[in-house]
Design a protein around this nucleic acid. Structure first.
Length: 512
RNA sequence: GCGCUUGUAGCUCAGCAGGUAGAGCAAUCCCCUUUUAAGGGAUAGGUCACGCGUUCGAAUCGCGUCAAGCGCACCA
């Protein structure tokens, strides 16, 4: 039955295990059964019997199940790992019949097995299930990454038994994340935290009266951000479509509709751009919109949201990232973009009025802004070069140039600026928010400026979205809007150096 | 896209003034065991990423390709 599975190219370990499938079939055992009546998790038992003294036995019977991660003494002792933790299994011939002993011999590292037995604590102090019965639940045909024994690693093993199995090859970790998860406890922790962080964000927003909505991922035209889109094609409609680069314009349509005065969406966006430690082509954004508030309220909301999540997930607002300590305790610093630049460079761009003059000023401090098309772009460029790298602690940089903010409302007291801010943590943009532009006439003018830039070769510029303008023409309430890069927040809260460490299956080049 | 680094057994790595591969763990068999990095003995396992070249001879040198990591560029 396993015959056709045997190929010359197979590794010997895999061949041996496929042979075991045949041995199991001979015994009438299905290596891939349908269910198991698991009634306890490893960590529950560890907690429940934490006061059981070494050497003591009970008659309490449980069924546990998980992956065989360590085998000692020819199978007499097994470390069984489930999603909660580890428990030791003791299998002795006194307690098992010959058929069960025979099955035990066919169990390999990596198999999923269920054990039923009584609770005891060994003289050495390890909580253990004394097995009375065992059930193979899934045969593993491929070997696991194994313990390795450099001096350094031995110390790790001594420090924490859960790290005995290790996989460090980056390519395998990313392409075959399941192996990474099996082998590395800290990776399991990271993805559990990812889930918890997103759950807590939802809970927080819902508790504040926000309604979760969903908007299209397939757009007839790309919009809502300056980015290059992925293009795809719908066959039945015979039309090109664009994977969304931001949900913004659809969420604002919902604000026009008034389904709720507070809405949010947590979902993927796609940008056809480079890949590095902070960018993955598909990434998770949270965007929210709240009627009758402005960008000042969004600043407060941002810091309350992020600090609350940190507190709930990590138990502290002072986080460690690499060798840095970042204090997320609100309130966060707030600096105007012009002020932050002046503070750092001494140049007051509020007194610079033309693009050409701005370029001269930029040049005077060693920033080449020749490619910039307007005053705002120069300002942004200078900011990125001179200010951003030093912004480790959380800070809201506000009042962005109108030139580079086509969806934000003009500043109420300076028409060269908009009521827009970006929040920086560890030098990264983690939030982008504005008093949303609700004036359809102005929005059209902004789109037209974008369309002109696009015509002049700016591949990331927006085009005119007539349908969106039509929506605005029906009237949208004054609204504060906020976008947060969820992956980057997760990186910060899990101390992950690369965005790929917090995305289970990051985008990789095709390989065959 | 450019630069630097990397790609050797299932995993982690060694070998690289060129002589055709090694270790630990994992695996197989045996012994012994209430162990915890269990122990002891024996065995097996590799087109040294791929291709071309230099050479009597290449995992080791050269060129190219592929993949990965990091940095820069691009990009929020």
């Amino acid at each position: 039955m396993g015959q056709e599975l045997l190929h010359e190219s197979d590794s010997s370990i895999r061949q041996q295990r496929i042979q075991k499938l045949a041995d199991l079939a001979d015994k009438g055992i299905n290596p891939y059964p349908y269910y198991y009546n698991k009634d306890a998790k490893a960590s529950e038992l560890q907690e429940k019997y934490k006061d059981l003294a070494a050497g003591e036995e009970t008659e309490d019977t449980y069924s546990v199940a998980g992956r065989v991660m360590v085998v000692r003494n020819s199978g007499m002792f097994i470390d069984l790992v489930d999603d909660s933790g580890k428990i030791q299994i003791f299998s002795h011939k006194e307690n098992l019949n010959p058929e069960q002993i025979a099955l035990l011999k066919l169990i390999d590292l990596g198999d999923i097995v269920g054990f039923k037995g009584t609770i005891r604590r060994t003289p050495r102090g390890e909580l253990t299930i004394k097995a009375k019965d065992l059930t193979l639940l899934s045969k593993s045909l491929r070997p696991l990454p194994n313990k390795h024994l450099s001096e350094e690693k031995i110390k790790e093993i001594e420090a924490k038994i859960g790290k005995v199995y290790k996989l460090t090859d980056m390519e395998t970790k990313y392409r075959q994340r399941y192996i990474d998860l099996i082998a590395n406890e800290e990776v399991r922790d990271t993805f559990r935290k990812r889930s918890l962080i997103i759950q807590k964000i939802r809970e927080y927003l819902i508790s504040k009266g926000f309604m979760e909505v969903e908007t299209p991922m397939l757009h007839p035209q790309a919009g809502g951000a300056n980015a290059r889109p992925f293009i795809t094609h719908h066959n039945a409609l015979d039309m090109d479509m664009y994977m969304r680069i931001a949900p913004e314009l659809y969420l604002k349509r919902l604000m026009v509709g008034g389904v709720s005065e507070k809405i949010f969406e947590i979902n993927r966006s796609f940008r056809n751009e480079g890949i590095d430690t902070r960018h993955n082509p598909e990434f998770t954004m949270m965007e929210l919109y709240q009627a009758y508030v402005d960008y000042n309220d969004m600043m407060t909301l941002t810091e309350n949201l992020v600090s609350t999540i940190a507190q709930e997930v990590l138990g502290t607002m002072k986080i460690t990232y690499g060798d840095k300590t970042i204090d997320l305790t609100p309130p966060w610093d707030r600096k105007t973009m012009i002020g932050a630049i002046q503070e750092k460079t001494g140049i007051d761009f509020s007194n610079v009025f033309t693009c050409e003059d701005a370029k001269v000023k930029a040049q005077s401090i060693g920033v080449n802004a020749e490619d910039c098309d307007n005053w705002g772009q120069v300002l942004d460029h200078v900011f990125e070069e001179k200010v951003e790298p030093g912004l480790i602690q959380p800070v809201h940089i506000y009042d962005y140039p109108r030139d580079i903010s086509p969806l934000a409302k003009v500043h109420r007291s300076n028409d060269r600026l908009t009521e827009r801010f970006e929040t920086r943590i560890n030098g990264w943009e983690v939030a982008n928010a504005f008093s949303e532009l609700t004036d359809p006439i102005d929005q059209r003018a902004r789109f037209e400026a974008q369309a002109l830039a696009k015509a002049n070769g700016d591949e990331e510029a927006m085009s005119i979205d007539e349908d969106f303008i039509c929506a605005l023409e029906h009237g949208m309430p004054p609204t504060g809007g906020l976008g947060i890069g969820i992956d980057r927040i997760i990186m910060l809260l899990t101390n992950s150096p690369s965005i790929r460490d917090v995305i289970a299956f990051p985008t990789m080049r095709h390989k065959d």
